[in-house]
Amino acid sequence: MNFLQGQEALTNIEWILRAIIAFFFLLTVAKLLGQRTISQLRLLDFVIALVIGNIIAHPLSDEHLGLKGSIISTIVLVALYLCSIFSILKFPSLRRLINSSPITIVQDGEILYKGLKKARISIDVLIEELRQQKIDDVEKVSLAIWEADGNISVFLHPKYEPITPSTLQIETESFNLPRIIIKEGRINFKELKQTSRDEGWVVSNLENLYQTEVKNVLLATLDNKDNLKVFLYK
Rank of each mutant, 00 (worst) to 15 (best):
L218R: 14
Y113E: 15
R197C: 09
Y160Q: 09
I71D: 09
I127E: 10
T167V: 13
T167L: 05
E110W: 12
T212P: 12
T74G: 02
F231E: 14
N54W: 06
S61H: 14
I170T: 04
E191D: 14
E14G: 03
Q40M: 06
I121D: 09
I75D: 09
Q169E: 14
S93D: 13
V51H: 12
T221R: 00
A30C: 10
C83D: 09
R36G: 04
Q35L: 09
T172Q: 05
K118A: 01
D108T: 10
E129T: 09
V29T: 08
W146P: 09
V125K: 13
G115F: 12
H64A: 07
I121V: 05
K193N: 15
G69M: 02
I20Y: 07
T172A: 02
G115V: 11
R197S: 04
F23L: 03
S196R: 09
S39E: 07
K140G: 07
K190I: 12
V51T: 14
E147Q: 04
R186D: 10
K183C: 02
K114W: 02
E207G: 02
Q40N: 10
T28N: 13
L94R: 10
P158A: 03
N151M: 07
E184F: 01
Q194V: 03
L94K: 08
N224E: 13
F155R: 11
V154S: 01
S87P: 06
S166G: 07
L219W: 02
V47M: 01
L94A: 03
V78D: 05
T37D: 10
L67F: 13
N216V: 01
R18D: 10
F175P: 14
T164F: 02
L43Y: 02
R197T: 04
W146G: 07
N216K: 13
Y160N: 15
A144N: 08
T28E: 11
F155K: 12
D198T: 04
T164G: 03
N227C: 11
E139V: 06
L209I: 12
K234G: 11
L82F: 05
D137W: 05
I21E: 15
L32V: 15
R18N: 11
L17A: 06
L168C: 07
E207D: 14
L67S: 15
L82M: 06
I152K: 04
N12D: 14
T74S: 05
L43F: 10
V106H: 00
P59W: 06
S196K: 15
S93V: 11
I52K: 00
L97P: 05
E191Y: 00
N208H: 06
A220D: 10
I56G: 02
K134Y: 08
S153F: 04
D62Y: 09
N54S: 06
G109D: 12
E199W: 10
T164K: 07
A79T: 15
